[in-house]
Structure formats: structure tokens, C-alpha cells
Design a protein around this nucleic acid. Structure first.
Length: 501
DNA sequence: TTAGGGTTAG
């Protein structure tokens, strides 16, 4: 949503009660931090920027962020390491203005000859690309180029962001200009371009790039796997099989990656006869399936609600002596949970897993919530916080929030939201806002729903058309006239998110 | 990013 539109509607907005952002903001009064460790330094900087310390308002541009940080007495005492800077940029990955402000502030704190780490530069490029601020991104890359700071990794970010936004010819242009960045056109950089195009389903365009370049640059086995994936993504498995032959012609043996890619394609076609045929072929061909292969098949079976068959695939993997990794076990736990086998899921979680991550906990928490065992679910959340192996994300909280709504406990909803924002610095995403707005409407609390709607708009997150309609209907029922006007205005002026399929 | 996920659904 453009600043212009926001300004135009800003005036009528400020007269409305409750004020936008008030919901989350009121939830977010955090205590004065002691700045003795990196995470509290990061928290303080975050609070300065989002306006919970010092000023009241959230900032609107990068210079304001810069000035706030420069003028804050506690920020002046912060030791700004590369890790802290990266952590901050990561937190502001959806807010390019704040990210650039932080970077500028970081620059002002350093000695003249000192450069940011390559990760920080690349993160900034990626954040600008994600926000589709192409001019700012090009300008930033130009400055990096003068500092000889552009790496292949930077180029990867630029290409993938361009291609992801449908600007795939721009991605090709970046490759053509590699020499200007002091980088080489070789198999690695060519593969990056081909992969970018294939992932965006421009496999024919990738093909023409290869034909053009192959006199100078030799393809390798990765090149062919990239094309196999490209064909499979566009559901052209015949071409993928043909690429396997082409690969052999170039003297490369198809590997477990080549076969697993094709298996996934058969999975999506629900052609399980072919899936199992290929599995046997792999075993016979001396490229045995691995944990990735089995996880792919299980996930697909799960999406068909074929949980028992999925568990048989897991058993087959164990029989063949292959060790599962975290993603495999996460899938297994999810399967067991969906199959109603809670005790088995608990056993796998406690005794079998080599390591766990956020998703593992999320699956377990969702399982407990699903079985109305919220006490156990919250216990796991606390365990997660205590062990610090992985941190909760918005998905950790979704089932918990859902349970609160189910019991009609909106106080607890508020408490959980506060915890998300203040304790874990999670920012609500589009799907969380949508979910909350729906549930508050259904709970006959459309004032809260409307607050969240405003909060969402103020963060440039476009609501779904359906969300607007639902909320509009509710505020009309309560004769909230200004809210009605405001929602109708948003529906006319903002490009709304299409409903999810 | 050369291959693998689900997540809030009355």
C-alpha cells in the first residue's frame, strides 16, 4: 500500500476509537532492558525503532530510524558486532525502511575503512528485493560494486528476487553484467541463472540460455538436475526423463537427486505405481533412495490423508537401514499425530529424534491442541523457551490461539499475543492477521478485529478480499460508521490479496 | 535454491 494512500486516509483514521495499533502496542510495554547481552541489546534497538521506547509512533522512514538510534543514549553504548547487525536485519526483513536505517546507523558507528560483513550486505539487498524496491536495490548494489563487495551470493539474491517478481529478463541481464561486478561467467554462475529461471517455470528460456552459452561454458551434473527439476515443476515428466538420457550422453550418471525429483513429480500426479517402480529402480541401479526420497513420498501421501500408507513408507525406509534426519522425523511425527497415534508420536519425539527444531515442537503442540491437551501443549512451549535449541514462531502459537478461541477465552488470546510480540518479537504475518480477524468477528468482537485490520494496513500487509467483506459486514451491524468508510476505502484503493486456493 | 514439510478450517 502506498504512503500516499495511507496519508490520505490517515486523518479520518486518527479519529477512530480504538486507535490503530493500540491492541498490539498496549500489549507491548516491555521493561527497561539491561544491555549486558546481545539479545537484550537487539530488543532495545527493536523497541527504539518500533516506537515502544522513546517516541510513541512507529517510524516511517530510514532517516528517522537512523536519527532515533543515533540519539538514543542506550544505543550509543551498544557494542555492534556483525552477529548483532545480522540479527537486526533479519528481524526487519519485511521492513526495508527500518533495515536501511539500521544499516546506516551501523555504518556511522564504524571506523571509516570498516566494511559490513558480506552477509549484512546480502541481507540488505535481499530485503530491498523482497520489497520490490528495484531502484533502491540497484543503487545499493552499485555502491557495493564500487566497494568490490558483490559476491556470487549477492548476485543470487538479486536474480532470485527479480525472477520471483516475474522480472526474469532482468535476471538474465544481471548474468550478462557479471564481469562488471568482477565476477566470472562460469558453470557455477550459469547454473545459478538456469536454476533461477527453472524455479520460476521459465524452463524453455533456460534451455535457450544453455544453448547460447554451451560453446563457452561446460554444463555439469548439476546443470542437468536443474533442468530435470524445471521440467518436473511444469509437470513435463517426459522431458525430465529425456534429460536423464541427455545427462548420460554427456557422461554424467543420474543420481539420487535426479530420481527423487522425478518421484516428486509422480507424487504430485498421484501416480503411486510409478513412484514405487522408480523406488525399486533406484535400489536396483545403485542410487538407493535416501531420507529425502522417503520424506517426499510420505508428505505427498499425507496430503492425500493416506497416513497408514505413509507409515508403511517410513517402515520401509527403516528396513533398508537408512537413518532419518530431522525433516524425516518431523514428517513422521506429523503423520503419527494425524493418524491419531499420540503415544507413538511422543515416543519418537522423546527417544528417536537425533535433533529437533521449531517445526518439531510446532507439530507436537498442534497435536496436543488438536486433542484438547492444552496444558501439555503449553508445557512444550515452555520447554522450548527453556532449552533455547530453537525459538517459537507464529506457527507455534496458531494452534494455541485457536484453542483459546474455541473455549471463548479471549483474555488468554490477548496474553498469548502479548507474549508473541514482547517476549519473542514475532511480528504477525498475513495469515495470522487473517485468522485473528476472522475469529474476533466470530466472537462478536469486531472492535478488536478492526484494530488488527488497521494494524495490518499500517504495516503494508494487504488483507484478503474475503477478510474485508467479513469485517465490513460486522462493523455495519454495529453501526461503526467510520470503520465502514475506512474498510470500503481500503477495498477500493488497495490491491487486495487473492483468496488462498 | 541440485531433491524433502506443515502450519488456523464448523
Amino acid at each position: 500500500m502506498s504512503r500516499l494512500i495511507q496519508n490520505r486516509i490517515g486523518n479520518s483514521l486518527s479519529r477512530l476509537k480504538p486507535q490503530p495499533s493500540i491492541l498490539i502496542k498496549n500489549l507491548s510495554t516491555s521493561p527497561e532492558p539491561s544491555l549486558d547481552e546481545e539479545s537484550s541489546q537487539s530488543s532495545h534497538i527493536w523497541n527504539v525503532i518500533v516506537g515502544r521506547a522513546g517516541g510513541d509512533r512507529a517510524v516511517s522512514d530510514e532517516d528517522e530510524v537512523f536519527h532515533r538510534l543515533s540519539n538514543d543514549p542506550l544505543c550509543k553504548r551498544v557494542t555492534l558486532s556483525d552477529t548483532l547487525l545480522n540479527k537486526l536485519l533479519h528481524r526487519f526483513r519485511d521492513d526495508w525502511r527500518s533495515a536501511l536505517g539500521v544499516l546506516k546507523w551501523a555504518e556511522s558507528r564504524k571506523a571509516h575503512h570498516h566494511k559490513h560483513s558480506p552477509e549484512a550486505y546480502d541481507l540488505a539487498v535481499d530485503i530491498l528485493g523482497k520489497a520490490k524496491k528495484w531502484d533502491r536495490m540497484k543503487e545499493f548494489v552499485q555502491k557495493m560494486s564500487e566497494d568490490k563487495a558483490v559476491t556470487l551470493n549477492t548476485v543470487a539474491k538479486i536474480m532470485r528476487r527479480f525472477a520471483g517478481a516475474g522480472e526474469w529478463e532482468e535476471a538474465v541481464n544481471v548474468f550478462d553484467r557479471l564481469n562488471e561486478f568482477g565476477l566470472e561467467k562460469n558453470t557455477e554462475s550459469m547454473n545459478l541463472l538456469l536454476d533461477t529461471l527453472c524455479k520460476e517455470k521459465r524452463v524453455e528460456r533456460a534451455r535457450s540460455v544453455l544453448l547460447e552459452l554451451k560453446a563457452h561454458i561446460k554444463p555439469d551434473s548439476h546443470t542437468f538436475n536443474i533442468f530435470i527439476n524445471g521440467w518436473c515443476k511444469t509437470n513435463r515428466v517426459e522431458e525430465a526423463l529425456w534429460t536423464i538420457q541427455e545427462m548420460r550422453g554427456y557422461g554424467f550418471r543420474p543420481c539420487v537427486i535426479s530420481y527423487t525429483t522425478i518421484i516428486k513429480c509422480y507424487c504430485l500426479q498421484c501416480d503411486f505405481i510409478k513412484v514405487y517402480e522408480m523406488l525399486s529402480e533406484m535400489e536396483a541401479n545403485d542410487s538407493p533412495p535416501n531420507s529425502v526420497t522417503y520424506t517426499t513420498i510420505m508428505s505427498c501421501l499425507n496430503s492425500q490423508k493416506e497416513f497408514e500408507e505413509s507409515l508403511r513408507v517410513a517402515a520401509r525406509m527403516k528396513r533398508s537401514g537408512i537413518e532419518g534426519d530431522t525433516l524425516f522425523y518431523n514428517c513422521l511425527i506429523h503423520t503419527l499425530a494425524r493418524a491419531g497415534r499420540v503415544e507413538e508420536a511422543e515416543r519418537v519425539f522423546r527417544d528417536e529424534m537425533p535433533s529437533v527444531n521449531t517445526s518439531t515442537y510446532n507439530s507436537m503442540i498442534a497435536m496436543y491442541c488438536h486433542h484438547d491437551e492444552e496444558v501439555k501443549a503449553v508445557e512444550l512451549l515452555r520447554e522450548m523457551e527453556g532449552l533455547k535449541v530453537c525459538e517459537p514462531d507464529v506457527h507455534t502459537y496458531h494452534p494455541l490461539l485457536r484453542s483459546c478461541f474455541k473455549r471463548g477465552d479471549v483474555i488468554e488470546v490477548g496474553r498469548l499475543l502479548k507474549e508473541m510480540v514482547t517476549k519473542h518479537h514475532l511480528s504477525l504475518d498475513e495469515s495470522t492477521y487473517t485468522f485473528l480477524i476472522q475469529r474476533f468477528c466470530r466472537a462478536d468482537m469486531c472492535e478488536w478485529a478492526y484494530c488488527l485490520f488497521e494494524e495490518m494496513i499500517s504495516q503494508d500487509i494487504a488483507p484478503r478480499h474475503r477478510t474485508c467483506l467479513l469485517l465490513l459486514e460486522e462493523v455495519k451491524k454495529k453501526s461503526m460508521r467510520e470503520a465502514v468508510e475506512r474498510i470500503e476505502h481500503v477495498m477500493r484503493t488497495v490491491k487486495l490479496t487473492a483468496p488462498v486456493k
